[in-house]
Design a binder for these strands. Sequence first.
DNA 1: TCAACTTACATGCACGTGCATTTGATGTCA
DNA 2: TGACATCAAATGCACGTGCATGTAAGTTGA
Lengths: 128, 128
Amino acid sequence: MEAPAEVDVCAKWSETLRVYHNTSCELESELQARHALGLSEFEVLLILTRNCSGHTSKAKMKDIEAEMYLSQSALSRTVTRLEKAGLITRAVCDFDRRANFLMLTPAGEARFNEAKTTHRAVLLKHLG
Amino acid sequence: MEAPAEVDVCAKWSETLRVYHNTSCELESELQARHALGLSEFEVLLILTRNCSGHTSKAKMKDIEAEMYLSQSALSRTVTRLEKAGLITRAVCDFDRRANFLMLTPAGEARFNEAKTTHRAVLLKHLG
DNA sequence: TCAACTTACATGCACGTGCATTTGATGTCA
DNA sequence: TGACATCAAATGCACGTGCATGTAAGTTGA
């Protein structure tokens, strides 16, 4: 009835769903319980640390949006939450006053470094 | 600095995120645009057709919940939407009046059969 | 038989998301 | 210049979700 390739594709999708669901749920609850961070908040910090190495702080919202699976509006609100929590700062760009430069605060750096170990542990558990 | 296994785990997670996001977004929008179905609604129909083969209609809410990555409350509301759309019916079980038997209507069966080809095409595109 | 517990499902509520729109700044071209 | 398109980001809104709780039906044990 069904070509074998299609059966494989369904099985592959089921497996992807399973792994994604289990991993992201545990990431979400562990990061929330241990570090008061949502998963998307953590991911913004993660990208920020990669793009800000050496304190050049080049990370604009648009740069982060391009690296994340999050809409522009959702990112905007996630950044607002992180700012209210004192973990990042928004600075207006001098050369393009439409754009925001995002920068980790010392508190944000500390929080991220703690959370990083939790994140790594959960990934190892589910994907290792 | 980092053990190679951990780098692999991060890359694996990125890849899982990418595949999951791209596939589920396209499933969602295609199913919605072509068949007026959400992804979780489609998945309920999918499980229902598997469990109801030969019109035995044994599918209770709890059975479906066990096969899906959806909370009990979300499933309850998804079933309500499907019922309002005339695609399934709820019948009270004679032996346990707490439980619902779910059954596809002819309209639900037709809608599902149309949507199935869209679903299969999207999966093949992303996972084939 | 009755009180306490458990189960199946529904519902109130808060929250994060995407879409559409708005606001304000930056090109662009006549 | 000035009118118009484009862009970055914020915001109003509707929606689906999970958590906690409610409701009604079934189960257990003394």
